[in-house]
């Protein structure tokens, strides 16, 4: 791992320190990644344990199984042991706890993301104009949902929603999650607008484009990477949020993180690990998408040579 070259004249002490430093960095990277990766093999455990069994360590196939993944589907079903035909799958779709939690999470996530992205992009366009009045103050207010502890937001929403009848409604949860996602949209879109060449829009106007055409043809293509990564952040924020849901949602409005929270607090079962594995794969896909978008954005804005 000698990617950092030592000069030829480095003393012995410097060499020893250099390699010690690399080992320390390696251990820190291990600390960062091991909790993410450890759940993957453990989720295939044939036994209801949270550690590696002797069979697993010797790569004995008997030590591994898909039973906890099966449990994601069967938990909450009316007839889990029936023949696995179309009616069994229908039972899964309608009754399995994790499936209905996933449905709720996706519905809430998609709508709150749409709301946050639409409002956030529009606001970012205004905020990045030099003439924007009270820019700093307004920016501070709009970013604060990311900074204020979730427990405070949840407490406030609990009082407010109880008084206005929004408690236990999907609309209420979607609005709350949109608020939590908005700071990310604003930050990512504003970042793509830094160094935005305003002569482009002026040129378009000179050539007779309407404001809407300017937005669609000039601005949107340039800020699109920022909009999409902001939207992904907003979606992940909603998809991972549990505190607000615990405070304002109805009992049967379960989401994936809430179901995990309940599972961990009541009786932790390895099913949680199989769900966690699926979520880790999900975040790997997201990370890849974000990285591709970032590169595309930098290329479009001419910040890096591709």
């Amino acid at each position: 791992m000698s990617m950092l070259k030592l000069p030829a004249h480095a003393s012995l002490g410097e060499r020893v320190w250099h390699y010690t430093y690399l080992v320390i960095c390696g251990l820190i990277f291990l600390f960062l990644i091991s909790p993410i990766l450890i759940v993957i093999p453990l989720s295939f455990n044939a036994e209801p344990y949270f550690t590696f069994t002797r069979e697993m360590l010797t790569f004995n196939p008997d030590g591994y199984s898909m039973r906890w993944y099966d449990r994601i589907l069967t938990f909450g079903m009316t007839a889990p042991d029936a023949v696995r035909d179309s009616s069994w799958w229908k039972d899964v779709w309608n009754n399995a706890d994790w499936i209905s939690a996933a449905k709720n999470s996706v519905i809430i996530g998609v709508f709150s993301t749409l709301l946050a992205t639409a409002l956030g992009t529009l606001a970012a366009l205004g905020l990045s104009r030099p003439e924007m009045p009270y820019r700093r103050l307004i920016m501070g207010v709009l970013i604060s949902p990311m900074i204020v502890p979730l427990i405070i937001t949840a407490t406030g929403l609990f009082f407010f929603y109880s008084a206005t009848g929004l408690a236990h409604t999907y609309v209420g949860i979607i609005m709350a999650h949109a608020t939590l996602g908005i700071p990310f949209v604003i930050i990512t879109v504003t970042a793509t607008l830094v160094g935005f060449d305003h002569s482009l829009t002026r040129a378009a106007q000179n050539l007779g484009a309407t404001p809407f055409t300017v937005f669609r043809q000039i601005i949107l293509p340039l800020i699109l990477p920022g909009v999409i990564s902001g939207a992904l952040f907003a979606f992940v924020t909603s998809f991972d949020e549990v505190v607000v849901v615990l405070f304002i949602a109805d009992f049967d409005q379960q989401t994936i993180p809430r179901q995990m929270w309940n599972g961990i607090r009541e009786q932790i079962s390895p099913t949680i690990l199989s769900v966690a594995t699926i979520l880790v794969i999900f975040s790997i896909l997201l990370l890849t998408t974000i990285e591709l978008l970032r590169r595309r954005s930098e290329r479009l804005r001419g910040l890096s040579p591709g």
Partner: peptide, 27 residues
């Protein structure tokens, strides 16, 4: 120009006041 910039931000500001500032005020 100032008004136009503010109008772009206004919908979001109203939304955040409703779903964030007001609830915390009530708390």
């Amino acid at each position: 120009a100032r008004i136009r910039a503010f109008l772009l931000v206004a919908p979001l500001l109203a939304f955040v006041v409703l779903t964030f500032v007001a609830p915390i005020g009530q708390m």
